[in-house]
Design a protein around this nucleic acid. Structure first.
Lengths: 150, 150
DNA sequence: TGACAAAACATGTATATACATCCACAGGAG
DNA sequence: CTCCTGTGGATGTATATACATGTTTTGTCA
């Protein structure tokens, strides 16, 4: 197994907050991706469906804003979801804009994958403990806001 | 400017910890990359040099472990650094292993870029406040460890 | 109204990253 | 020593992501 990076080696705190953040994101992404494997969705796709389920109808630019994701990146990450019929895209009244919303099929797909996602999240929460988990969630929101203010 | 994702829109907490982590990582990476721009290094490269400066001499696999990075990814991310003469790679006594270490030129390059990195980190720390910043650092270490235990 | 600056997205390109698979070497069982 | 298994890394391939630039549309100002 070249993969999984599940070595027993103890981690060390790195001096760079960005490096620590990216490392944690890689480690956690692998956990969730492993959980979602078999659901046919990868974490990024699940996230998009989940956010679209919340926002109902949203422009590409605003969606990028919500996710701190370059809006042009969404052009390509949303394309396969549209292709699968999970997301509908339409031109806005402002015809430069592109509006996205979840289709019923997309909602079903999201619900189908949700248990696997919930199990992965539960695994992480169990290991961290409820308190740390909740603190992490708010700390991550705080730092995402801080980074764009900085 | 399509870029920078610096919209004024307020962020919202997402239900998925992985999504929150990845969003924070994108936002913070942009902050550091912007700071490092002009230094000729991107955050990932800076991180590699910084870690190699700490570890002195390390196998590819162990380096991947430290960074929760698939070791085969390092084959390609380290290649340009070797090409520039900043990192030396050599076969280990166990001839399957590849050992990496910083060269003097690599150390100079690291030192040249360090002020820009420090300014970016200082910007983030200022906005977050010292306490939040330190808590974030340890929370990130904790979660990276948790994810690989989970 | 007509020209122009700015906004929203599409496209080209480069990097970051993971996983499947392959090859070379190491270490143990016989 | 020879075979087998397992480990470390290289390569092929696919996705995630950002930025530069191009294109279309909007809104404004003369």
């Amino acid at each position: 197994m070249a993969h999984g990076v599940r070595g027993e080696a103890c981690l060390v705190g790195l001096p760079c907050a960005c490096a620590n953040l990216r490392r944690a994101a890689r480690a956690v992404t692998q956990l969730y991706d492993e959980g979602l494997r078999g659901s046919g969705l990868r974490t990024t796709q699940f996230t998009l469906l989940q956010v679209l389920a919340i926002t109902r109808r949203i422009t590409q630019g605003r969606l990028g804003d919500l996710l701190s994701l370059d809006s042009t990146t969404l052009t390509r990450t949303l394309r396969p979801l549209v292709g699968k019929g999970w997301v509908r895209s339409a031109a806005g009244k402002d015809r430069r804009e592109r509006l996205y919303q979840l289709t019923p099929a997309g909602r079903r797909e999201l619900e189908r994958a949700r248990p696997a996602w919930a199990r992965a999240q539960e695994r992480l929460r169990k290991v961290l403990g409820d308190t740390s988990f909740e603190r992490l969630q708010s700390a991550l929101l705080e730092v995402a806001e801080a980074a764009r203010r900085a």
